[in-house]
Design a protein around this nucleic acid. Structure first.
Lengths: 197, 197
DNA sequence: TTTGTTGGTCAACGCCTGTTGGCAACGTAA
DNA sequence: TTACGTTGCCAACAGGCGTTGACCAACAAA
């Protein structure tokens, strides 16, 4: 059972001649998904951007869902919040999310797709659950409240991303990173560490 | 120029025999747009829900964009914030938005569509600009800062709607209206009335 | 050189989409 | 009754979609 598919991830380090092509496809896919959402980001358009034939996409990623999954393997790369002073949690969280969101458009693509695509929404939920929930558990007063507090933070962070990077509301776009941090950090700090209102 | 199209809005009160059908189409369209987004809400599916022929949709609303525009004529119905005590604006704003969002799914449809559809995004922006900005202007310390403050409120409100009504993050869904108000009201209050940080 | 694997193109498939025009049934005013 | 505008269904169109399989070129091992 050596497998016919050349895409089989047999070992981790298996440099193939087609790696550059694969990377081109993924980059084009990320851009298209981020710009157009799942339905309007057609395989044909992605292939055109990557200057290859649409059938290559199918060969390397199976189908459109596989391509999407490969193009949006997001990792929020959370820092270790047990080492962050408790009163700085809000600020660190905001700056970290700004970093993540402005890097490569993976999260923008994920957000756009999550809105019209059930698996996309599920993945978004998983990402935030796996990566934001532990932060809340580490710093909030009662661990039982961690999901609620993480959810509130997710709402605020995603709302800013929505208005700033997707809908592009002018006031939200005009804010500098500094200003975003000054406004949002106290909010997240309160959601995470304040007594339940 | 009497117009061939029976859909011509000549007068405001022109009861037609087809009014119930038109209403059925709009209701079905709102549901489909809210559930599936713009691309996947097909005219055929909407017509099936309304138990009529797809061509009727075209006759009454011209094309798909016209149908969408008719189905999502949103009005946030803002109360008069000059009569609200200054320290209550956050709370009133949250409860009002919860009311709006849980009524009929118009806003959910609009949000879903705005994410993958340029005119949809533009309309969302317009709605918030026309209706949230005056509120900010009425209550914030420096009117020049009103757009920024309205934008921050929009981010928080849309973020909650996103996680609660669209992505359905469990912690966000589990919150009661009471809890949402208690958590979010102070945030909006600060965004609107606090000194610039 | 031969042989087999990989990288890539081409043409086509079946399906679904938004949209159109023709045609029958109904209701109403003359 | 006749004439006409409205309401509705039906069948079809052109085009785009995801997906498939046959086929050629380049390379690597024998």
């Amino acid at each position: 059972m050596t497998g016919k598919a050349p895409a089989a991830p047999s070992a981790d380090a298996s440099p193939r001649r087609s790696d550059t092509t694969r990377a081109c496809i993924l980059a084009a896919a990320r851009e298209r998904f981020a710009a157009d959402g799942y339905e309007r980001a057609t395989i044909r358009a992605i292939a055109r951007d990557a200057r290859i034939d649409p059938s290559m996409v199918m060969r390397y990623y199976g189908n459109k869902e596989g391509l999407f999954a490969a193009a949006t393997s997001a990792d929020l790369r959370m820092p270790d919040f047990t080492r962050v002073p408790r009163e700085d949690v809000g600020r660190v969280l905001v700056t970290h999310f700004l970093d993540m969101w402005e890097d490569g458009g993976v999260l923008t693509a994920l957000l756009r797709v999550a809105l019209t695509n059930q698996p996309g929404a599920e993945r978004m939920r998983t990402i935030f659950e796996e990566q934001l929930l532990p932060v809340a558990r580490a710093v909030c007063p009662d661990p039982a409240e961690a999901p609620t507090r993480a959810g509130l933070c997710a709402a605020q962070v995603l709302g800013l991303a929505l208005t700033r990077y997707v809908l592009r509301f002018p006031p939200s776009v005009a804010l500098t990173r500094e200003e975003v941090t000054r406004w949002l950090a106290p909010t997240l700090q309160r959601y995470l560490t304040a007594e339940r209102p």
